Simulated assay, not measured.
Amino acid sequence: MLTLAAPAIAQEPPPIPDQPLPQAAQEARAQALFDDIRCVVCQHEAIADSPAGIAADMRRLVREEIAAGRTDKHIRQDLVRRYGDFVLFKPPVRLGTWLLWFGPLAALLLVAAALIRRARRPNGDTAPLSPDEEARLADILAEAEVRRDPDAKASDD
């Protein structure tokens, strides 16, 4: 019985419901930040849309920082310090993130260069047929002209 109940026991408890900030301007700032911050569990969702418990904790942290008077820049820097550049949907451009920003473009350019190089490469010239091969080809073509398709109809001509 205990092994059957283990998955239910091991599940994450539901997150505490969000408590919006009392001032509308502060809550609007928080919502804008939520859309710019990636959930570290879901990885493809903003913390505003994520049902994960860590996302609820991150939303609560952002609201606490806004209520404490921190700037958006300071809040982002604190989250980057805790979770790395990955936590931002738009990480800063610096040496450590060049691959993230320019890697897809570099890969696309490399593939395009390889395709262009392959297209410009001369195809190997085929050697001319020997007299024996030419005679055999002539025989095959002559047979093809005489031999008709047995399933062909007059309308197929």
Rank of each mutant, 00 (worst) to 15 (best):
A144Y: 07
A6M: 04
L95D: 10
R70F: 08
I37E: 07
L4Q: 13
K90F: 08
E143Q: 15
W101H: 14
G53P: 05
A28W: 10
A46G: 15
E65V: 01
R94S: 09
L4T: 04
P150T: 00
D132H: 14
A152W: 05
A10C: 07
I47C: 06
M1S: 14
R148Q: 11
K90V: 09
E65C: 12
L109G: 05
F102P: 02
A10S: 08
K90D: 02
G96S: 11
L61P: 00
R81S: 13
L105Y: 03
P14W: 04
F89A: 07
A32W: 01
Q19D: 13
E134D: 11
M1D: 09
G124N: 01
R147V: 08
A5D: 01
A144H: 05
D132R: 15
K90A: 05
S50K: 06
D157E: 08
A154S: 14
A55R: 12
L105N: 03
I16N: 00
V93C: 01
A67S: 12
T71P: 09
R38S: 12
D149A: 02
W101E: 04
P13M: 01
I37G: 02
R147E: 04
A154I: 14
P122T: 11
I47A: 02
D156H: 14
K73I: 14
A152Y: 06
